[in-house]
Write a protein that binds this DNA or RNA. Structure first.
Lengths: 156, 156
DNA sequence: TTAACTGCAAAAGGTTTGCCCCCTC
DNA sequence: GAGGGGGCAAACCTTTTGCAGTTAA
């Protein structure tokens, strides 16, 4: 099991700038897809909206349960529904748990520090473009990609 | 669950050219790492050597059990040991099972046809180089990468 | 003989499902 | 009163582990 995800795990995840606006757009998206935004689903979305990391189902529930209460099964059902609807993105990391994020922006790589387990989001337009080109060359239309770069920290 | 992995699942996986030589080198590698190649471990390696796909633990055992017999726990223990030794590479795909391949060559992307579930191996030196550069730019030394490109088949 | 390895069965951990209640339309 | 959603607990599936028997150095 990964060692150091202390910061995020302790619960002090901060708010992403512009979260409100994004939430409204997700809400609209759900509406247009015919997904009823119940209390529980809204709560799950809120947690993901506020997260700056990629929480798993139990972690999402843990964050919820500070104040409110949603059954774990409901969290899973919500995550599955929203993933199938294309609103969330599910990623599998090596700890065996699925982790989720709002599919608000383009697919982006994750860099995983193999020494600490820390996950860093990467933004690189060139890389994304090149991946798209590879898919095209093989005769496919790029739908999405999952790139995990495992790196050893330059730390001393 | 993924739909079409019919061909490989039916068991008609073919032999990779040059498999014998490669097997000897794996065997040597195990020796130099102090890993005893028992009957069971050799069988697991043989299956992986002959595979052209990326079988999961139960699938490996299924292929074994045509003739011989290895306990599933042993398959798992072997896969873990060889993965930790750096001889195998474990990849997580979206069906929740870990799949394995012999780490004989450089890390390479997988293209997954989202319509059929088919997995295609991709070779692209430029892409690999660019991923390495990204890691370096962020201050890491590239250890490995996992790139899954999800594409929609150009099929009619 | 000791240490490593295997098999079996049970346990573990994440995820899904069945069932029933509740709420809404 | 029909239908969808949620809670709870049980089921499921992959993977791990404890233990006892076996093999090998």
């Amino acid at each position: 099991m990964p060692a150091g995800r202390s910061a995020a795990m302790e619960g002090d995840y901060s708010t992403r700038p512009g979260a409100d606006t994004a939430f409204e757009s997700v809400e609209r998206l759900c509406g247009s897809l015919g997904i009823t935004l119940t209390r529980q689903r809204r709560i799950v979305l809120e947690v993901l909206q506020q997260a700056t990391d990629h929480p798993c189902a139990t972690e999402i529930r843990r964050r919820i349960s500070r104040k409110r209460r949603v059954a774990l099964a409901t969290v899973y059902r919500t995550l599955n529904m929203l993933t199938e609807a294309g609103i969330l993105k599910r990623s599998l990391f090596s700890d065996g748990r699925a982790r989720y994020e709002i599919l608000g922006r383009r697919a982006h790589p994750h860099l995983i520090d193999v020494t600490t387990g820390e996950i860093v989001e990467v933004d690189d337009e060139d890389l994304a473009r090149q991946i798209e080109k590879v898919a095209q060359r093989l005769g496919y239309r790029l739908v999405d990609f999952h790139l995990k770069i495992l790196g050893a920290g330059a730390a001393k």
